[in-house]
Design a protein around this nucleic acid. Structure first.
Length: 678
RNA sequence: GCCCGGGUAGCUCAGACGGCAGAGCAGCUCACUCGUAAUGAGCAGGUCAGGAGUUCGAUUCUCCUCUCGGGCUCCA
């Protein structure tokens, strides 16, 4: 038998018989390795250990210590899930089951439209555990396309995956002639089409848990049948699984919906309707502070403040095109019978602010000297989001956009976009957010308005600034709207879901539809470019993300109550109230909880409210004008002079460069009443 | 919108072959006045989400609606 030669990661060579597999090589190296190895990486590609090694290959062995293994472990676990389900529900069929972040899922269709229940998950888990214990080897084989079709003859959803499987990627399209489809067999002849690789046998699978069952459209399309999807999580060790479950629990504890109730920030009364929030006093303070700081920064950045009504006659949204494209997403119109003859006029709640700002631009002739003209509004808009997508404050039907529209010349567009993204990111960071990435959506393939040069210029300007930020930049080729490229800032919530926050959107379209013009230095009329942008996205969503980001423990400048004052006994009430007044005088938010409960209980409650400072005052403090300071996350300090404490508060809050107290900074008023800088 | 699972006191949850509805916390009252993470006792609190049906009788069974959760799809 002729020999082959392979190279190991340390550069050494090994001679093996032709046809030797990764497992053979591992065994040749040592029994410990042979036992531990799960996947062979051959020339950088993951392979089954049972696959013969090509001559001259570079081979690296992956064990459970290598994070790359997780993907294969999860894929193999999904395979076992399918095995269990098909066995337990005769007549069931299956579609796809890939590894995903933290786990895997598999889509099934049960006979007679049956569905999985939560109880079924436990039963399935049990069967999977048995399969894993019986240590069934995964055996790979390949078939031609027609044979493969026959092999999966009982499973009508499988052929859709065959092209992708043979092509080795997820792209659609016909499988090239002559391509083989790979299958894996284990146990009593359970077979699944899969491009692999799998771990050597089910016994090598680690710790898993089935998490939930959900409906999912076949191939992700609403027009396809809905399948039953089972989600699971899988890890190489019991500890990793436990750690993951623990992370989920911790994430749930910082869920903004839960904290919204616990901290008395906001609620969604059923009486009002889905997706319509009310903000309670404490949430109201946080929101006001968020907005005030935003206003201040916008004023400094040369924005002008405008206001527009919540409803408008339909023709405005006909002109803008919103009714043409997004009528589904708008609340149905109010029909007003204006002349008593049944000739009605429809009024719509606005889903967007842009047409209003456009009308402000168009209210008179504009000169190039006024550009860029930046109009800002906290605009309340209403969108009839589908019931199934509503989610806490992050997806609502009534929301407030921190919306601005910038009208600029073509020449200034790139500069304006550049400074805009800087502005956006700087403001987000001021609120303490830094876990985000950028997504750049470029010109769609099909129809698009605007010239190639305009698209190119706008896209390049966005890309340049995005890259200059040193942030992760995800390209979304062709993902832009037909009217212009877009860059968005995506933030993660406590559970790892990503939410779009800021967007900057170039619009070549609306200026045309509304025939916007300005007079240039040449005396001729020109069409401006319009930029839509929102930083918070919506105030509500941003609020929700902030709550989760801070787990409800807002930084002192944003905290609804900055100090809770606890008199040790009734005798200290007067002192406590005087202290509270003093703090409020200095511009801070304090509350007094009198001694109706024990001190321990009141401290516990205040801590539960995540107040930055709990101040305990007793005899010593009354005598010497001091406080006992119990800071959030710190240790207790007695006998701190009140002036000293106020100075510390001031230093902490002012260092954030934010308003010291609720209320609009005088600079906002000054800036807003003077012409915008350009 | 679609699939699955929920909705019992303000909150977290028990409960009931179909026969007067339960706890803890929160609230109120009283006592306690306390120096750093739950003092004690008592009181009050519910059309068991809403509507219809079956039934002598429905919070419990059936249907519809609303609403919440987890996903899918969508997000100007």
């Amino acid at each position: 038998m002729s020999a082959i030669s392979v190279t190991l990661p340390d550069g050494s060579q090994r001679e093996l018989d032709e046809g030797s597999t990764g497992a053979d090589l591992a065994a040749d190296i040592g029994s410990g390795l042979a036992k531990a190895v799960l996947i062979a990486e051959v020339n950088g590609e993951p392979r089954d250990l049972s696959a013969p090694l090509p001559d001259g290959a570079t081979v690296k062995f992956l064990t459970k210590r290598d994070p790359e293994v997780l993907e294969h472990l999860r894929h193999s676990t999904a395979h076992v899930l399918a095995q269990a389900v098909l066995e337990m529900w005769p007549g069931a069929t299956f579609a796809g089951g890939p590894p995903i972040e933290d786990g895997f899922y598999y889509d099934f269709e049960l006979p007679d439209g049956a569905t999985f229940s939560e109880d079924d998950l436990a039963r399935i888990e049990k069967r999977m555990t048995q399969i894993i214990k019986s240590n069934q080897p995964f055996e790979r084989y390949e078939l031609d396309l027609d044979e493969a079709m026959a092999e999966m003859g009982d499973h009508p959803y499988k052929p859709a995956f065959m092209s992708a499987a043979s092509a080795g990627d997820d792209s659609d399209g016909e499988a090239p002639a002559g391509e083989k489809i790979s299958f894996y067999r284990n146990g009593d002849g359970f077979v699944d089409m899969c491009r692999g690789p799998h771990l050597p046998s089910t016994g090598k699978l680690g710790w898993f848990k089935l998490m939930r069952v959900a409906g999912a459209y076949f191939r992700g399309s609403e027009s396809n049948p809905m399948l039953q999807r089972i989600y699971g999580t899988a890890w190489t060790s019991k500890d990793d699984l436990a750690a993951h479950l623990d992370r989920l629990e911790q994430a749930a504890a910082r869920d903004h919906r839960r904290l919204g109730a616990e901290l008395d920030l906001f609620s969604f009364p059923d009486e009002i309707g889905s997706g319509l929030a009310v903000f309670h006093p404490k949430g109201g303070i946080v929101r006001m502070l968020m907005e005030d700081y935003s206003r201040k920064r916008h004023a400094e950045a040369g924005y002008e403040f405008v206001n527009s009504p919540h409803i408008t006659k339909e023709n405005l949204f006909q002109t803008s095109g919103h009714l043409e494209w997004f009528a589904e997403g708008m609340f149905p119109p109010m029909q007003l019978d204006l002349d008593g003859d049944g000739n009605s006029t429809d009024y719509y709640l606005k889903p967007m602010n842009c047409p209003f700002h456009i009308l402000i631009f168009r209210a008179r002739m504009r000169s190039y000297r006024e550009l860029p003209l930046r109009m800002f509004e906290f605009g309340a808009v209403y969108r009839y989001e589908k019931s199934g997508v509503l989610h806490g404050l992050t997806r609502v039907r009534g929301l407030t956009m921190d919306d601005a529209h910038i009208f600029t010349t073509k020449e200034n567009m790139a500069d304006e976009l550049g400074s805009l993204l800087d502005f956006v990111l700087s403001l987000l960071r001021d609120y303490g957010l830094d876990d985000f990435y950028l997504e750049l959506s470029t010109r769609p393939e099909e129809k698009a308005v605007g010239t190639d040069a305009e698209w190119e210029e706008a896209t390049e300007a966005l890309r340049k600034v995005a890259e200059g930020q040193g942030l992760e930049l995800v390209m979304d080729p062709g993902g832009g709207a037909f009217y212009g490229p877009k860059i968005s800032v995506q933030a993660r919530d406590a559970i790892g879901r990503t939410w779009q926050m800021s967007t900057i959107q170039v619009d070549f379209q609306l200026p045309q539809r509304f025939e916007l013009e300005y007079v240039g230095s040449d005396g001729e009329r020109h069409r401006p470019i319009m930029i839509h942008r929102a930083l918070f996205g919506s105030v509500e969503r941003f609020f929700g993300v902030l709550v989760e980001h801070y787990a409800g423990a807002f930084p002192t400048w944003l905290a609804p109550v900055q100090a809770t004052i606890l008199p040790v006994a009734d005798a200290h009430d007067d002192y406590a109230h005087a202290l509270s007044a003093r703090l409020e005088q200095a511009g801070y938010r304090a509350e007094v909880i009198e001694a109706n409960d024990t001190l321990g209980k009141r401290i516990r409650n205040a801590k539960g409210q995540k107040v930055p400072y709990v101040l305990v005052v007793g005899d010593d403090d009354v005598a010497s004008d001091t406080v006992g300071v119990n800071p959030r996350g710190g240790s207790v300090e007695r006998d701190v002079a009140v002036d000293e404490f106020i100075a510390r508060l001031a230093a902490e809050v002012d260092s954030k460069g934010v308003p010291e107290a609720p209320g609009v900074d005088q600079r906002v008023i000054d800036a807003a009443s003077s012409p915008a800088s350009s």
